[in-house]
Design a protein around this nucleic acid. Structure first.
Lengths: 227, 227
DNA sequence: CGTGTGTGTGACGGTTATGTGAAAGAAATA
DNA sequence: TATTTCTTTCACATAACCGTCACACACACG
């Protein structure tokens, strides 16, 4: 699965250079030329990462970043600020409103790509091989093993496990899982999650002692090898 | 857990608009209509953030802010000043007495919400890792350890401990705890707090000498490593 | 050293959250 | 189309937790 990168940048030439390079690298891209458009695209497509120009015609990058970070759907999306200025002060302000990284223009494309890769990895996004404890998942071949043994999962169980593997030990509430695994616009009962967790448990723990899924009463579930 | 925001504002209509919007956003709110009442509420409930009107009947917002910032229990609570005036001079004076941010009325609610969120994050509220003495809590994994040893807590005990860890050593009255942990609209007996404190004590002190919870007779409880 | 008020805590009944098999339909596959 | 796999919901069983009470104890104060 290709990672989707949203570019918010008003200079068209600059944006095209970025798109060209990112797509050559195997990413999908979207482009917004104004802050407003950018924010809409961010909500619409839920990109895996956002490249954000500091200076935009209608709103400062700072403000855009603040809005991205204050919306629950996008708050965990890594944001890399692009800027011509390079004062420490700006940098601090940028990171202050929640930007994850900060690259000064004119940047070398190579450096930018490196930062993107690092931020994506950091957010646990787009990885092909996911692992936790003795569980391995290859997202390209859709193969899951535990301690070398093949595990067969249904589509939903696969997506749940993938979500878990992207943030091991994190507790996911039922509604967060519904958002993430089923999609924000789908309506299904909370308890449906329980049933799928049950199936995932059965598949994962078959032939094994240890239950890798922890139930946190009144909070949700987590992938966790400790008790 | 919902953050608690204290609104100090004498115009009732204005206060209600704020309360409505904040609660829609998932915050808890308290409202004080005068400076004096506001300061009392601040001490009683230890809000996570304070919205402070510049003009109050009994005392200037500046003075209120100074008092908030000079009291040990509240000095680290972020204060956002609300004002009709917009001169640079006022802004400077506001920030001068320790206000953390400054919003000019009539403000867009969206902007105010963004500022609130940013100030909360900035103050480290909603932090993932909380620690005091040898107790560690990770709110994302819902895991609590003492001196490295895993501690199992029920949901309510977890929330109480979290409240304690957010303001170590602060003495919480039973009613303040009920508001924070149970929610303002729930009615349960004061003494129920005692029972849960007892359960928290048992879980936390199992295998340990030192009792980390201090009882302050006729006042409440506190997380405190000293006697 | 007795009295009143505040606190610690075991026990208990009731409530809520979770685990899970089954059923019925939807979607994918052949 | 026939068959298989998957999803969702429901109902019930079970486990975990909650709030209250009652009584014992601690403390402050005269």
């Amino acid at each position: 699965m290709k990672a989707l990168i949203l570019i918010i940048e008003d200079e068209h030439a600059q944006a095209q250079i970025l798109q060209y390079n990112l797509e050559a690298e195997g990413y999908q891209t979207k482009h917004g030329a104004t802050a407003e458009e950018g924010l809409l695209l961010a909500k619409e497509y839920n990109p895996d990462l956002i490249l954000l120009d500091w200076m935009l015609p209608d709103m400062s990058g700072i403000e855009v970043c603040r809005q991205i970070k204050s919306h629950p759907d996008t708050e965990s999306t890594p944001v890399i600020m692009l800027t011509a200025r390079g004062t420490e002060d700006d940098k601090i302000r940028g990171l202050d409103v929640g930007a994850n990284d900060y690259v000064v223009k004119p940047h070398s494309i190579k450096e930018l790509l490196a930062r993107i890769k690092s931020n994506l990895r950091n957010a646990g996004i787009g990885k092909v091989e996911l692992a936790y404890a003795d569980v391995l998942m290859n997202t390209e071949t859709h193969r899951v093993t535990r301690n070398g043994k093949n595990i067969k999962l249904g589509p939903t169980e696969f997506r749940i496990l993938r979500t878990f593997l992207e943030r091991p030990q994190k507790v996911w509430s039922r509604s967060a899982l519904l958002d993430r695994v089923w999609g924000a616009d789908i309506y299904v009962d909370d308890r449906t999650v329980d049933v799928h967790i049950g199936r995932l448990r059965r598949a994962l723990n078959k032939d094994f002692e240890k239950d890798l899924i922890r139930t946190i009463r009144s909070a949700g579930y987590a992938l966790d090898k400790d008790d």
